[in-house]
Write a protein that binds this DNA or RNA. Structure first.
Lengths: 323, 323
DNA sequence: TTCTGCTCCGAAATCGATTTCACTAGCCAC
DNA sequence: GTGGCTAGTGAAATCGATTTCGGAGCAGAA
């Protein structure tokens, strides 16, 4: 069935120890012996058992990712990029989705799997990240907001993202801003809200409306209707997500022309370019985010001991055709 | 650092064997001994090492998924659902993304990780699924098309999906159909094309145009321009993806009214409901697909030996507001 | 010649669990 | 009293690799 290192050893007339040394990289093994061993490995199609390896050296070459699809607007992009980057670093990815299990249980499961490191993405401020508990493995909080004192943290500066959106709108002539986002119910929403407050204060812009609720088309539509029914409707919408922005975009009549309020979305989802009129939105640096996370994690795996880092990457504004 | 079964054994004044028996489920252990052991386990916070367990029993409780984000239009939904379902079955998910590595290499990596089973999603017909090679673990092809003779196969009946789209359009009065899809370059595209050919033949509908290319907005737009420039433009568009449908939807002027061609997309991506005018599209039964896959795989893990199954699930039409 | 130092390699311990085998009591039946 | 059975437990082998320790062989120096 399975070909073990003993089979190879027998085939090459050497001891398993020698085979292991060849595998490790011809450290101190006679060139011709090494060659003979390699031939046998090739012939038998031997592949070392990762499980046995993991047990012996106390590393599994495995990273755990705890995320759920709605924990982050770009969760899919995160998983994809991370999986690639880890593969390049010879690491495998264990995926733990927080569906029916509580966050802590998933983390425990992955730790029991002996992952070498953990990357956590939490969407709600209510879920607590483990306080580096139990196993002494590096834990990295990915876009979980600032104030992550216990762990390394790599995140997007969502406050800056919303600030850019507001500055853009004001520069375009907007005077009465409406904000529709998630608010403090989500980690990202809370930061966005901070950014919104800061930007409007800085620019002395009128906050015409602040509507906090789920990032759904339904919520966006109902709030929009109420705002339009008011006697001084906003001339620009700052949205906490592209879904909200797209919903508003679709609900507003196209024919308004110059009268049409400005809209800025958030997230730069792949499909926003398909909307008409095209949306202006804020692009999250997901690739950089993940790359940076992997870089930090690898440093930790390499044994670096230092205070937790906190890296915040700035998003950038993507202009739609409206500008 | 880590607490082992020996620590528990010492704490409870028993042998590791007894602790193991308690863990396995009080098989033949005196109730009071079991209770003592459980107390110690609780007190020390002992969690059995999955790596050591995997080595000893020859199962890891782990399933490998090989997929890349563009291998399937609903890859994100697949990963999410699968992760949940596996967690419910006490299985962990190893994710192998086919980015810079060839498909076979990823499969090998996962097999070396000693996964108990593999689920493969391939997007291109050119990548070959392994012929049950090497390790004797169950392999399941997920939406990899029919004709998967070596492995269990659970898939969506994409031919039926396109057939429904065509029937709908013809029923709505369409006479000159255009098809814009991926063609045989992708597994799904090939089946869709079959379905299109079958449906148009059955309904004796005129195939006004057949444009095969990437599922991108760019390709959709350029083909649309050419079709519109022709002297007898189509009155309905059958699209192989929602992206193509949305691009066409956005590019066609809204004001056409009754003259506006009908459009049907494919995939029912979450964002299609945000398009205006709303898109009619074909919904893929991703949840059922994954659930069925997990069911089949669990049967195999349970030791069921029988010929490979081939399960095809029908998609369903989602009407937009145009109908 | 003997000693030192090197290179190459094998024996055996080890990682942390599971599981077989054997052993001790205790009990019942003959 | 002896044999057989069961229940409860521990010693030790095992899974498949890695790694330490030490031995053999050989070259060069004293």
């Amino acid at each position: 069935m399975g070909i073990t290192i003993y089979d190879v050893a027998a085939g090459a007339q050497v001891s398993p120890a020698t085979v292991s040394r060849v595998l490790a990289g011809g450290n101190s093994v006679a060139p011709e012996t090494a060659e003979r061993v390699r031939t046998v490995i090739e012939r038998l199609g031997y592949r070392p058992d990762r499980v046995a390896q993991s047990l012996r050296r106390q590393r599994s070459g495995t990273i755990g990712l705890v995320i759920s699809v709605d924990a982050h607007p770009a969760s899919s992009a995160i998983i994809d990029r991370l999986s690639r980057r880890l593969a390049e670093a010879e690491l495998s990815l264990f995926l733990g989705t927080t569906g029916h299990e509580p966050f802590g249980a998933v983390v425990d499961r992955l730790i029991a799997q002996r992952v070498d490191g953990l990357i956590l993405v939490r969407g709600r401020p209510t879920v607590d990240l483990p306080a580096s508990d139990g196993a002494e493995i590096p834990i990295l909080a990915l876009d979980c907001g600032h104030g992550e004192l216990h762990h390394d943290s790599v995140r997007v500066d969502h406050a800056a993202g919303i600030r850019q959106a507001v500055r853009f709108l004001v520069k375009e002539g907007a005077r009465r801003l409406a904000y529709i986002g998630e608010g403090t119910a989500s980690v990202i929403g809370a930061e966005q809200l901070d950014g919104y407050a800061a930007a409007t204060a800085e620019l002395e812009t009128q906050q015409a409306a602040l509507r906090l609720g789920p990032a759904s088309a339904h919520f966006a539509n109902s709030e929009l209707q109420r705002l339009l029914a008011g006697d001084d409707p906003p001339d620009a919408y700052v949205c906490g997500s592209d879904v909200v922005a797209a919903a508003i975009n679709a609900a507003l009549p196209v024919e308004l022309g110059e009268e049409r309020p400005l809209i800025v979305g958030y997230g730069a989802m792949p499909w926003v370019s398909l909307m008409r009129p095209a949306l202006t939105t804020v692009r999250l640096p997901i690739e950089e985010l993940v790359d940076e996370a992997v870089r930090v994690l690898q440093q930790r795996l390499g044994g670096l001991r230092s205070d937790p880092v906190d890296i915040a990457l700035p998003p950038s504004l993507i202009l739609g055709e409206t500008s």
